[in-house]
Simulated scan of single mutants.
Amino acid sequence: MPVESDEEVRAVFDLEAIAVVGCSSTPGKAAHEIPRYLQDVGYEVIPVNPNAEEVLGRPAYDSLSEVEETVDVVDVFRPSEEVADVVDEVIAREDVDVVWLQLGIHDDEAVSRAETDGRKVVQDRCMKPEHRRLVA
């Protein structure tokens, strides 16, 4: 189910736990600054980055499948070519409600699979400005 209206996007921000696949440990990068913003405004940010031990003061997981906490939203900061693998991991979990693909990240086939599996999908939007516009 594509999430397109402001009301639908606003509802995503009612969820609490956001796993950020590709969360960066490098300040200044969007994949660091946006999760940090989300953490600062009260979301539980769960970093997924196999190249980091810790991001934003939290242990980083090597993959989404290794995340032990409950995940409501998966925010993807990886190249479009990697979306299919992330969606495979989402489908293997029962807790994820929403897949959010950041600006410029697309994979129509993977999105279709996620939606067919009952997940909501947001594409080509950034969580930080959307949160500021609709919630903050």
Rank of each mutant, 00 (worst) to 15 (best):
M1N: 11
P2T: 09
V3Y: 03
D6F: 03
E8P: 05
V9F: 04
R10M: 07
V12A: 09
V12L: 10
V12S: 02
D14I: 02
L15C: 12
E16L: 15
E16Q: 15
A17M: 08
I18C: 11
A19E: 01
A19H: 00
V20Q: 07
V20M: 07
V21W: 06
V21F: 12
G22E: 03
G22T: 02
C23Q: 02
S24K: 00
S24E: 02
T26D: 15
T26P: 09
P27N: 11
K29P: 10
K29L: 14
K29G: 11
A30S: 13
A31T: 06
H32C: 09
E33Q: 10
E33A: 12
P35N: 08
L38I: 07
L38D: 07
D40R: 08
D40L: 06
V41S: 12
V41T: 12
G42S: 12
G42E: 06
Y43V: 06
Y43K: 15
I46N: 05
I46H: 03
P47N: 12
V48F: 10
P50E: 01
P50D: 09
A52W: 04
A52S: 14
A52V: 08
A52N: 08
E53P: 04
V55S: 12
V55T: 03
G57A: 05
G57I: 02
G57W: 01
P59W: 07
A60L: 04
Y61F: 15
Y61G: 10
S63W: 08
S63A: 15
L64I: 00
S65A: 15
S65Y: 03
E66V: 03
E66S: 13
E69L: 08
T70A: 14
T70F: 11
V71R: 03
D72L: 13
D72R: 04
D75S: 12
V76P: 01
V76C: 09
V76W: 00
F77Y: 11
R78P: 00
E82K: 07
A84I: 07
A84R: 14
A84M: 11
D85S: 15
V87H: 03
E89L: 05
E89R: 08
E89G: 12
V90G: 12
I91Q: 07
I91W: 01
A92S: 14
R93Y: 02
R93E: 04
R93G: 05
E94G: 15
V98Q: 04
V98Y: 02
V98G: 05
V98E: 04
V99W: 05
L101P: 01
L101H: 05
Q102W: 09
Q102E: 13
L103E: 08
G104F: 01
G104V: 00
G104I: 00
I105V: 15
I105L: 10
I105K: 07
I105N: 02
D108K: 07
D108S: 14
E109V: 14
A110G: 09
A110S: 05
V111T: 10
R113N: 07
R113I: 00
A114G: 04
E115D: 02
E115T: 04
D117T: 04
D117F: 09
V121E: 00
V121P: 00
V122T: 04
M127W: 03
K128I: 04
E130V: 11
E130W: 10
H131K: 08
R132Q: 14
R132W: 04
R133I: 05
R133A: 14
L134Y: 07
V135F: 11
